[in-house]
Design a binder for these strands. Sequence first.
DNA 1: CAAATTACTTCGTGCCACGAACAATCACAA
DNA 2: TTGTGATTGTTCGTGGCACGAAGTAATTTG
Lengths: 143, 143
Amino acid sequence: MKETLGAASGLVRLTFLVQNLYAEIGRGCDLTVAQAQMLCALTEDSLGMADLSATLGLERSSLTGLVDRAEHRGLVVREGDPSDRRVVKVTLTAAGADAVHKFHDQLTERLEKLVADLPATERERFTRTLGRLVTGVPAVFAD
Amino acid sequence: MKETLGAASGLVRLTFLVQNLYAEIGRGCDLTVAQAQMLCALTEDSLGMADLSATLGLERSSLTGLVDRAEHRGLVVREGDPSDRRVVKVTLTAAGADAVHKFHDQLTERLEKLVADLPATERERFTRTLGRLVTGVPAVFAD
DNA sequence: CAAATTACTTCGTGCCACGAACAATCACAA
DNA sequence: TTGTGATTGTTCGTGGCACGAAGTAATTTG
């Protein structure tokens, strides 16, 4: 019968799968999901709290605690911005960069492995479509 | 330029996108993400706590509270299983079935809309590959 | 029948996210 | 220059989520 799953169902299940992988690898790196997400968003550049909260889709008040805990663990530091003394820039520490690098590598490997079984053409098509679907999604994870 | 995103990055961003949609629609139905997930898992059949925790990938101790709160909101009821008096079966109430139905429909609509812009062939291929990737993922969302 | 197993709960801990209310700073107009 | 209004970040209170360790009850196994 080879019942074909609908697109919605497939998307939700894929999300479920990736989310669990994300959490599992995070645990291995001693990072919560929220922390890993935040660190990933900071790999490119330091960001102010407002930009960071917009990127992550969180309220600013939620972010304060998240950064507090990450700072307390030495993953991140807060720095004042001389050009605008209201803003607090959040920057990865060496330890934070290290942790997120490890996390990123492991997650990438597992995800590549997930699609590795697909025939080359199918995989390429899939990846291309994927890219098309996520245009506009903030850079919560870079290559 | 048309920089092509890697598969891993695409998967993470797609997950991020779907997760946010999930949360947004959940909020509209007055459901948290965890609650919506649980109710979806129960649409097919009642499940015992152990089965449910396995399906959702949660510790049983986590599930107790989740069911507590859902039961308190009248979305779900606990029933004893006469054939094994240890097990507690969790079943949707009418209100719970209603809520999850609404949630499911809205989410499905939004997700279908997400892929609706793709050319027919590409969409079909994508959906098929999706189905291939999620074989073995528990039925956290059905068609 | 005793021991091991299974199903579920309780308890304590920590994390996460929200909204409302607040202080500091900045931008701009009168 | 001095308001006035917007923006930035924080605090506080509330509720929800998830875990592991420890405990109880029922079932299975030897």
